[in-house]
Design a protein around this nucleic acid. Structure first.
Lengths: 144, 144
DNA sequence: ATAAAAATGAGACTTAATCTCATTTATTGT
DNA sequence: ACAATAAATGAGATTAAGTCTCATTTTTAT
């Protein structure tokens, strides 16, 4: 069982109520969520300014990823050991965001290609993100 | 020589001054630009509301891509025949955005992997985007 | 237990993007 | 080419995501 206090302690940030509340919410959700939704879920538990501050704190200690949907909604997602590097699939019909893991063989090919690009552009690439856009046919909760 | 009027006509949108002005600006730039920069470049040529409207029009006819930088700046880029599908490299030091083409062999592998994911998730994937994050060492104009 | 440092809440503030509506410009049919 | 109709524009008001301020509260270190 993952412990929010332990996560905070491990990353050497002070353990406060709002941080615990936000972390537990994200741990329970375990999938991408828009900041808006998170805000309304936690409306009467943490102040808006605090929520944004805590999200920034979690980004700073590298356990939170943030990205935008094609509809320009900001989405956050916890990245812990049990939920490592992956990519996203966006449904343009219902807005659903699905976590996708690439085949290991492909991910290796990608890393090789990235090395080529590092050399070519004299760049140090620290992270990459692959986004897939389309329409789900029967998987999404919202699409029918 | 690419002609902005022809582009508009080809896509069956009416030919207006603001659209020509915005298109010519984007054609000349030929690389990703933040909406902010574009706005200040065209400040006294098109109204702000019109610029946003024209950008949306260009997105609607699928010749403009829009994405966000890690610093949450909105960036647009013209996608025409002479500047086809490609990816982006973001420098976290200077903010520079660099167009990157993947090796054909790799892009094929990616398409194959995408097909696998389509089957697995029962999804129709229409577009994909790969973003690389890192630091440039000597290429960027701004970095030294 | 206490002092110093850090985080929080509430709401003001900023700013990118959208909206409104009166006016201007483009298109279509004759 | 011209009038009638439809579409697009400009200017500024409006909205809303995200940040900032600062007095108060909570956490941490001693």
């Amino acid at each position: 069982m993952v412990n929010s206090r332990k996560i905070l302690a491990d990353h050497k940030v002070s353990i406060t109520n709002p941080r615990i509340i936000v972390l537990e919410a994200l741990l329970e959700i375990k999938s991408p969520i828009t900041v808006d939704e998170l805000l309304s879920q936690l409306r009467n538990k943490v102040a808006k300014s605090t929520l944004y501050r805590v999200l920034n704190d979690l980004k700073d200690i590298n356990i939170l990823h943030e990205f935008s949907t094609p509809a320009n909604q900001t989405v956050v997602e916890l990245i812990l050991e049990d939920h490592p590097h992956h990519h996203h699939l966006f449904c343009s019909d219902c807005g659903e965001i699905i976590d996708v893991e690439m085949a290991t063989e492909f991910e290796n090919k990608l890393l090789k290609e990235i090395k080529r690009i590092e050399r070519k552009f004299n760049f140090v690439i620290e992270d990459h993100r692959l986004e897939l856009f389309g329409k789900c046919t029967d998987l999404c909760v919202n699409c029918k």
